[in-house]
């Protein structure tokens, strides 16, 4: 059940980010300055942590979603749902470690300070 709770929570979170993200991207149509200013905010250290959180949510939602699809369409899916959840957790962890390292490295390389 907790995977389902997690799936719902991450889903809601991603949905609201999506609204914001489409709006901020739409600024490219308003003016380049505006867009660059807003995008600049994403490069703030606090937002960097937020981005890791966001990607964490997306990756979990994605992997768990794939697990749900397997449960739905693979004959043995219901029998191995627990093992698959473990696999999701492991994959999530590996992906997130890789992503975080890369993202933080990029961030610190290009960071110009506050």
């Amino acid at each position: 059940m907790w995977s389902w709770v997690g799936h719902r929570i991450t889903g809601v979170g991603i949905f609201f980010f999506l609204l914001v993200h489409v709006l901020d991207t739409s600024l490219v149509r308003v003016s380049p300055e505006a867009y660059d200013a807003v995008i600049g905010a994403y490069k703030h250290p606090i937002m960097i942590m937020g981005e890791i959180g966001l990607v964490g949510a997306i990756v979990f939602h994605a992997f768990n979603g794939l697990r749900i699809i397997l449960v739905d369409f693979w004959k043995q899916g219901t029998r191995y749902h627990r093992q698959m959840l473990w696999a999701v957790m492991v994959l999530w962890f590996v992906t997130m470690v890789a992503f975080s390292i890369r993202h933080l490295m990029i961030f610190f390389e290009g960071w110009e300070g506050f």
Binding site: F99, R102, H103, I106, E109
Partner: peptide
């Protein structure tokens, strides 16, 4: 959902993981 996994992962990868990552994003 299945399609989005591909779409978004590529999106994230091309925007954040290659080149200068987050710093390259601008107009």
């Amino acid at each position: 959902g299945a399609a989005l996994v591909v779409l978004i992962f590529v999106h994230l990868f091309s925007n954040l993981m290659v080149g200068e990552g987050i710093h390259q994003i601008d107009f």
